[in-house]
Design a protein around this nucleic acid. Structure first.
Length: 187
DNA sequence: TAGGCCATCTGGTCCT
DNA sequence: AGGACCAGATGGCCTA
């Protein structure tokens, strides 16, 4: 089943940077509070301290004084913040990509995997279109046409060896239009 | 309720 | 050494 037309998710507030090991941060419910932890689950505190239920890695340098532990926790929180920012940047790039993919209903937000797949096939269909036009010797395209076609053939040869299904330019266009159709249908 | 998608945390590894 | 990158784990939200 698919998730369609989902409104923007509620942002989880940033983690409290004053938190210390042993405290529960409020941004996410703790499985261990109240009901017992499910198998394989650990509390955030346990995870922050690098403790695994069994056979896990243990972060070095956390067995010392409180000061060292505090600076370690501080580093981890800063790292978390950087990671959040990095993921936001990545999501912005996904959004920018969504906005340049045509023929998709504006009220339907593409998932990440849909965005990547559609973009890939859109690029391929554009490439196929360009090749078709340039092989027809359009005015002003005398130069790059043959080179572009050679490059394309090399790419196809490499891809064909890996079993790529689209051997002809028309295949890309067909695949792209088919995919657009399926996305619009919500399948 | 199950499953899909996502945000966030986390520790390991790579890179500068 | 510190930051970027990556992948696994976890849990929330949403839809069918």
């Amino acid at each position: 089943m698919k998730t369609k037309n989902r409104p923007p998710r509620r942002r989880v507030p940033p983690q409290n940077t004053e938190a210390t090991p042993g405290e529960q941060t409020p941004d996410r419910p703790q499985p261990g509070s109240g009901a017992p932890l499910a198998k394989g689950l650990r509390s955030r505190t346990a995870r922050a301290q690098g403790v695994r239920a069994e056979g896990g890695r243990r972060r070095p340098g956390l067995s010392g004084q409180a000061g060292r532990r505090e600076s370690s926790v501080q580093r981890r929180l800063e790292s978390n913040e950087r990671e959040r920012q990095r993921m936001h940047t990545l999501n912005n790039a996904f959004q920018a990509l969504r906005e340049v993919i045509p023929h998709v209903r504006a009220d339907k937000k593409l998932s990440k995997i849909e965005t990547l797949t559609l973009a890939k096939n859109y690029i391929k269909s554009l490439t196929a279109t360009i090749l078709t036009m340039s092989s027809g010797r359009l005015p002003g395209l005398e130069g790059p046409g043959p080179k572009l076609y050679q490059h394309y053939q090399q790419q196809q040869a490499a891809g064909g060896a890996l079993g790529a299904p689209e051997a002809q330019p028309e295949g890309h266009l067909h695949k792209y239009s088919t995919q657009i159709h399926s996305f619009r249908e919500g399948s």
